[in-house]
Design a protein around this nucleic acid. Sequence first.
DNA 1: TCATTAAATTGTT
DNA 2: AACAATTTAATGA
Length: 239
Amino acid sequence: MLRTSSAAYLLARARTPEPPELADIAWLKALLPNERERALADLKVVQVEGGELLCRVGRPATYWFGVIDGLLKMSNDTAIGVPITFTGIAPGGWFGEGTVIKREAYRYNIQALRKSLVAGLTVETFHWLLDRSIPFNRFIVQQLNERLGQFIAAREIDRLGDPDARVARSLAALFHPILYPNVGSLLRITQQELGYLVGLSRQRVNEALSRLGVSEAIRVEYGGVRVLDLERLRGYGMR
DNA sequence: TCATTAAATTGTT
DNA sequence: AACAATTTAATGA
């Protein structure tokens, strides 16, 4: 039961965003009043159900997306059909700027792991801001820089043999304060969802989380994980 | 608002 | 993969 969403469909369902949802968009606050006004007018917010695809490989990029609430995953289908997950995208995270800048087609699938609120800025407005706003450019540069760091870290995670360490580092990535500023100290994610992201069974994730809890790096809660010590989580299993 | 019931999530085998 | 226990969400008085 996998529903797909065309850009037109998303647009048709979009509603005008309300202040509480937009209050947490970091880059909006840095804009000049007239630029912010235009961005606000262009922003669309849609609710997507768990399992829905926001963008598909090959579709032309029409929006730059941001997660208001919920959890998404970025993945790709390999030649043999086994999808590989690149990363999860948590509240406050924005993505797709690489593709939007080049005016190309999406190179990955973005799927909602559960019901989520997603904001979209059109390519036109994105470029309009890129052409005149220095704060906006700063945000984008920082965004690209941080994400590069995260992808390099992800390569290391893949090579880690210890499942506990993989869960720890993947979790730490989702608590990245710059890429996902609105996660806070409590990340709403089920152990099943975390299993999808890390590529482990739910049982193994459960086991890993228990140990991370014992080490005081996190506290396992119903339907989520609370970070007690982000540094400890990042360095779990290293010596 | 409260009690009951269904659904989701977790911990364990 | 299956099970029971626990927590949350939904429902209706």
